[in-house]
Amino acid sequence: MSAPSGPPLTFAEAFDLPLSVDLRTAARAFGVCSGTAYKLIRLGRFPCPVLRVGGRYRIPTAYLLRSLGIEERPVYAVDLEAGAAHAARLQHATHHGTEVPA
């Protein structure tokens, strides 16, 4: 049996994943090697839904995280600051009758 394709994903890495990931990344998240991941797909036993796109497998990140028991994305201080800044711009624009940049 082969070793996993790198160290398992950390929470920070998992929350920074794009909307879908390749099979190697999903295998890392589950702590298995790519060969085991392919075998699980062939057997219909991969722990989350897998999409076949062309000749490659893609795993939607939402399904991957849910399969790992992660139901919600945590809120980080940076997210709160960005949200507060956006709310302040909206409030300023409302009071001054100007458009709000996105």
Rank of each mutant, 00 (worst) to 15 (best):
I59F: 15
H95F: 15
T36L: 11
G54F: 08
T61I: 13
A93T: 05
C48I: 00
L80S: 10
A12H: 12
I70V: 12
L65D: 02
D22Y: 05
E81Q: 15
P18V: 06
L9W: 03
L9D: 07
C33N: 13
S20I: 01
L90Y: 05
A3T: 12
T61F: 06
G69I: 15
P49A: 06
G69W: 12
A12R: 10
T94H: 11
T98A: 01
A77D: 05
A12L: 15
D16F: 03
A27K: 12
V75N: 10
R56I: 06
A26W: 01
T61P: 03
A26G: 03
D16E: 00
A85Y: 05
T61H: 06
R42L: 14
P7I: 13
I59K: 03
Y38S: 12
R24Y: 08
D16M: 02
R66V: 07
L90T: 00
V78F: 02
T25W: 14
P4K: 02
P18I: 11
L64T: 14
A85M: 12
A88D: 00
Y57E: 03
I41P: 07
A27G: 10
G44F: 13
R66D: 00
I70R: 05
P74L: 03
G97R: 12
A62D: 07
F30Q: 08
V50E: 15
H92P: 04
Y63A: 15
R66M: 03
A12V: 07
A37F: 13
E13W: 08
E99C: 15
L9G: 04
S34K: 14
S20P: 02
E72N: 00
S20Y: 05
Y57R: 04
Y57V: 01
P8Q: 11
A77W: 08
S5H: 11
A37W: 13
P60I: 02
V32P: 08
D79V: 11
A93D: 05
P60D: 02
Y63P: 14
A29I: 01
G83P: 00
A14I: 13
R42E: 07
G35E: 12
A12I: 10
H92L: 12
H86Y: 13
L9M: 04
A84F: 00
G31K: 02
I70G: 00
A14R: 07
G54I: 05
A77H: 06
D16V: 02
I59H: 01
G54M: 03
R73L: 13
A62H: 14
L43H: 00
A93V: 12
L17P: 06
R73K: 04
K39Q: 00
G55Y: 06
G31E: 03
L90P: 01
A14G: 04
C33M: 15
S20N: 08
H95Q: 07
G31T: 12
L68P: 05
R73P: 09
V32G: 06
H86M: 08
A14P: 04
G83Q: 02
P8E: 09
R56W: 12
R45H: 10
P8D: 07
I70N: 01
Y57T: 06
Y76H: 14
H95P: 08
A84T: 01
V100W: 07
L19H: 01
A85S: 09
L64K: 08
M1F: 11
A27W: 11
G6D: 06
G97H: 12
T98E: 03
G97W: 14
D79Y: 09
G69F: 14
A12F: 11
I41N: 03
K39R: 02
G44A: 10
A27T: 11
S2K: 14
